[in-house]
Design a protein around this nucleic acid. Structure first.
Length: 659
RNA sequence: GCCUGGGUAGCUCAGCCGGCAGAGCAGCGCAUUCGUAAUGCGCAGGUCGUGGGUUCGAUUCCCACCCCAGGCUCCA
């Protein structure tokens, strides 16, 4: 055959001479594309531009400004990072260096147990820039496993990877290195540097350059804390300097809306170190927001047919033995307290207590579904290194409910629950949901296959009816039943896992829960666990980040601040505040001792939704000037009653002035 | 838990080679009375995370501990 015919993504064909490469395809399409090209996708596989294209293959050229293009750029930049580290630390062992979301990393073991420090980043970066300027080409080679073992003889991590491949590599990850079954692929970008790699890579280092090393970290080899800890360098790379700058800017923005920063700046919450790690206190301005959240939650639950219960924070070990927590969850529980009549634990979950309420007397099918709701505070011992502001904390309050129902009621109960959950999340400004369905772990479960099937289908059916996109996490269920976890997307596109709905066949069994059915027989109820906020603390943290601290008016700790232009307007300002306060508006007056501009600035920094400025004209006409958060131009001379009714409407609608 | 970085006034941070601890903001006082993001002057504020060590002398150097942040999952 002297020619090959390839199919392009638009369905058109190109005919090239036999032995043509992906680069030839790009050139056949256009000089501009050939210049941009970084790699190619041939028959579904990513390959180098130098790779030959077989007859009949589908060929797509990968350019920098695409997800795949950036991945190639980042991966190649990771190689340059490794090369630079090997120049600076001769004898450094190098492990793995993949592209990851938003960047790349590479793991090393430095000679004599050396560690990277922040100062090293600048040195490594400048060597990387030298390597890039040297315009080294990346060339692929394939060799036998034995040749590979020889080539990387002084590289224990590479040897481990190759050996696993040789042994028939149970891991899919390692199979990626096997080309043709018995060989491995390597890339050289000079005589100086060679790396075991699947590729593809950019043609030459000169195609790189818009990168930044971000941080150093320790990382266990293969993510296993029993194995050696390597030194990891994280970096990011983009196809243009502007892309890199935009990414760095986004990171700066995300930092500005960090809930820990906002919680402190807005005087909402603090984490006194005297209390110990992972324990928060709510200040008055945070407390009032929490009260709004809780009041709203209780209202919704009351309307949804829930009953309110309260249970203690501390319980005898017996109850956690019965529930299985001491068997399955002990690592996350606070250590036991020995007391006169036994051993006690802080509760890590509310379910055992709710089961005891169910069990306190005989139950009839007429009572089901029985929905017990509690804002229940739980304590979990999280490892010190995993604590993170309000998102990962050791003491928190769940908007927790356990629903006891019959097998026949399960389907409808889950369906209505899903609607209930999403209504609640929407009320807090989240619109974009996705979900995970976690199914049975075949090695670890309780209950019959039939009931798992019923429950899993009930969960699946409910999500499909709601048009909720979901992914299945096979085998990820709790041992006691399948579950749905619901994610929300926040204002800057990040996903947060909040709500969860879980079926439980374990607790009813362990607590021997029963109800008497219409047939006068005893039956075992099914139990649903569900939390909408998840944890109030975490939900509050997510809200702060989502709104960048600009909470909607119904939640804002202070909704209105009234400022007189001069001190002689203070009385009128107080009368305006009195009118609003009588309507339940959270309002304060700041007297006119300081210049107006300074007082406005302070109110803005405190993110008060409405600043009312009142002066001579307002006193005379009974009006207010409105400076709304987020608006460019203040309004003058608005009738107070008009402002009040607009404010009431906004509060009722859970909106923000900037909406 | 482990790696890296950090802990100095309420907050944000400066403090080179060891020599009596600094700034801005916030706070307090006085003056200023002002129409939409910083009025001026003054005052006060610290066991430099904790405990040891080296030294004539330690915020600074060494050791241990505590707390905070990032990372330890996305595959050479």
């Amino acid at each position: 055959m002297s020619e090959v015919d390839v199919v392009l993504p638009d369905g058109s064909h190109r005919t090239l001479r036999a032995g043509a490469t992906a680069r030839d395809v790009a050139e056949a399409i256009g000089a501009r594309l050939a210049k941009d090209a970084l790699a190619a996708r041939v028959g579904g596989a990513l390959v180098d531009l130098a790779a030959p294209v077989p007859d009949g293959a589908e060929v797509a050229i990968i350019t920098p400004a695409s997800d795949e293009g950036r991945e190639v750029l980042r991966h190649s930049t990771a190689h340059v990072l490794a090369q630079a580290v090997r120049r600076l630390w001769p004898g450094a062992k190098y492990a793995i260096g993949p592209a990851i979301e938003n960047g790349f990393y590479y793991d090393f073991e430095l000679p004599h147990g050396a560690r990277f420090t922040d100062e090293d980043l600048a040195r490594i970066e400048s060597v990387m820039r030298e390597i890039i300027a040297e315009d080294q080409s990346f060339t692929r080679d394939e060799m036998s496993i034995d040749e590979g073992l020889h080539l990387f003889a002084d590289q224990p991590y590479k040897i481990e990877i190759i050996t696993k491949v040789k042994e028939g590599a149970s891991d899919e990850e390692d199979l990626g290195e096997v080309a043709g079954g018995a060989s491995i692929s390597i890339y050289r970008n000079s005589e100086e540097f060679v790396d075991l790699c699947r590729g593809p890579h950019v043609p030459s280092t000169k195609r790189l350059g818009h990168f930044k090393l971000m941080r150093v970290a320790g990382a266990y080899w293969r993510g296993d804390e029993k194995r050696p800890q390597l030194q990891r360098v994280y970096g990011t790379a983009f196809e243009t300097e502007a892309g890199l700058a935009a990414h760095l800017h986004m990171l700066a923005e995300a930092e500005k809306r960090d809930h820990r920063r906002l919680a402190s700046e807005l005087d909402l919450i603090s984490f006194p170190s005297e209390l110990g790690g992972g324990l928060a206190v709510w200040h008055p301005r945070g407390g009032i927001v929490r009260k709004q959240m809780e009041d709203f939650s209780r209202e919704r639950h009351q309307a949804g047919g829930y009953e309110f219960v309260v249970t203690p924070h501390l319980a005898n070990a017996r109850v956690f033995e019965t529930s299985g927590h001491l068997g399955f969850y002990k690592d996350a529980m606070y250590p036991p307290m020995e007391m006169d009549n036994g051993t006690y634990y802080m509760k890590p979950m509310n379910c055992p207590m709710h089961c005891l309420i169910f069990k306190s007397r005989a139950r009839s099918y007429r009572e089901l579904p029985l929905r017990l709701f509690e804002l229940g505070t739980v304590y979990r011992y999280e490892r010190a290194g995993t604590l993170h502001g309000l998102m990962r904390i050791r003491g928190f309050t769940q908007d927790d409910s356990h629903i006891y129902c019959t097998e026949e009621q399960l389907d409808e109960e889950i369906a209505s629950l899903l609607g209930f959950v999403m209504d609640m999340l929407r009320a807090f400004g989240f619109e974009d949901f996705s979900a995970y369905l976690s199914t049975k772990d075949p090695d670890k479960y309780v209950g019959s296959d039939e009931i798992w099937e019923t429950a899993t289908e009930a969960l699946r059916g409910a999500m499909e009816r709601f048009g909720l996109a979901y992914q299945v996490k096979a085998g990820d269920a709790a041992f006691y039943g399948p579950k749905i976890d619901i994610d929300v997307r926040d204002a800057i596109g990040r996903r947060w896992q909040l709500s969860t709905i879980q079926c439980d066949f374990n607790h009813p069994e362990r607590f021997d829960l029963e109800y008497v059915g219409a047939d006068n027989q005893r039956h075992r109820p099914i139990m649903l666990h569900r939390a909408l906020f998840g944890s109030i603390e975490r939900f509050f943290g997510v809200l702060l980040e989502h709104y960048a601290g600009n909470l909607p008016t119904w939640l804002a700790p202070e909704q209105v601040r009234v400022l007189g232009v001069r001190t002689d307007h203070d009385d009128y300002a107080a009368s305006v505040a009195a009118v609003l306060g009588a309507e339940g508006v959270r309002v304060n007056v700041e007297p006119g001792d300081e210049p107006l501009g300074a007082r406005i600035r302070r109110a803005k920094l405190e993110k008060v939704p409405y600043v009312l400025v009142v002066g001579d004209e307002d006193v005379a006409a009974g009006t207010v000037g409105i400076n709304a958060r987020g608006s460019e131009e203040p309004e003058r001379g608005v009738d107070l009653s008009e402002f009040l009714s607009a404010l009431r409407a906004e509060i009722a609608a859970h909106e923000r002035p900037e909406d």
